[in-house]
Design a protein around this nucleic acid. Sequence first.
DNA 1: TGACGTCAAGATCCG
DNA 2: CGGATCTTGACGTCA
Length: 451
Amino acid sequence: MPRIRTDNKTAANAPGKPPAGGRIGYACVTVGVPATEIRTCTEKFATSEKLREIIAHNLDALYNQCAYNIARGIYLFRISSDIIPFAGTPVNTLDWALLFEDPFRRIGEKIRASGMRVSMHPGQYTVLNSPDPRVVTNAVADLKWHGRFLDALGVNGENKIILHVGGAYGDKSTAMHRFCQNFRLLSPETRARIVIENDERLFSVADVLSLHGEIGVPVVYDNLHREVYEGRFAGSTPEDPTGNHAETHRELILRCRKTWTEKDGRQKIHYAQQSPGKRPGAHSETVRSAEFLSFYDTIRDLAPDIMLEVKDKNLSAVKCVLLLEENPASTRLEEEWARYKYRIMEKAPENYAEIRKLFSGSKVVRPTDFYALAEEAIAREEDPGKAENAALHVWGYFSGKATESEKKAFFRRLDAYRDGRGSLFAVKGHLLRLSERYGEKYLLNSLYFYS
DNA sequence: TGACGTCAAGATCCG
DNA sequence: CGGATCTTGACGTCA
């Protein structure tokens, strides 16, 4: 069994600085990497003691997320808005920027030294253009703390806060006008960080471009929102008052490009793929390589920063980084293979064998070949026989050292799964606990537990 | 009033 | 007691 190191210091012959082209990034959650989990709590339990504890934990996690990203050539990252629970509300009265000055400095230095660009993205409930003044007050407070967070990291104005326009309230032009009015309620520092994004239902690319004309905010182009807005996944193409559907992604990206000035930094776009069979706009499980590459080919020369919006988060980010890089060090793809191994084995042993052959050959493995096989395997349905076989492989790490009761517990769950009384989830849960108990780093970094 | 997105935290139940 | 499973929360819009 190869012991490929996956800790952040040694893992990757990662590039020491961002590539000359655009960056690739992902949002908020780092899948399958120990000590990167962001915690939160409900209002009922949000004592200042508890909040302190969670913030301290979350800033540690953020540091680990950044370290992971940088080591793998991911220089674009969206920080979760859960990082400071109840920030900007009366529930959290802590002066967190001051209390955690040291962690903030440490993280900020790491980010700046690497050339990484970070962002934040308040959710659908931050509505700056609401007709309800209380909602606007909350939105202003919310945007303010997001700005303060980025300030506390000491990152410059290229590190943005992404915002949607908000509601339409039956009259889009009034709603857009109100957005401009309320935008002026923000401090100049906060305003300088705001960028707006087209959404899938109310405000098209043309709409946000016209808002740019009014207040000068840069525009983030989101390809999937645009397609959903135009009805691409609804079975027909309805009339579109903006006429957008005549334009290619490239053409719209070029129009949005003009909204980014020197101080805003490189143009940034969002990229997502439709999840097959789900609601229009639902993000895909993973970025499908071929589809991504054919999109990228149309804008390669523009080299924008690309934020991926996808369920498997960093896994797709690493994938896209490797797909686009000229000559990635082979250890970087090997590290991914090590992580995917049992996840592929449990779905498609043939693909597992095929990939092994790729890596044992004398030629350098092409990321496209590896990911084509991996994607095909992971997309398959659960197969109990194959899943059991993979579980036994993983159990092999413990068979020599587990206690009698741990062994019994494993086979009780495995038997239960085999004859339909128990779940694969329970089997894996037990194996994960064993991995933690025995400190099996190789398995703790495996994606087997995160499918 | 509840769906919408989202998913961990908390509550409850079970062996 | 640990572990599995169910429920709730937290925000604003809109039907």
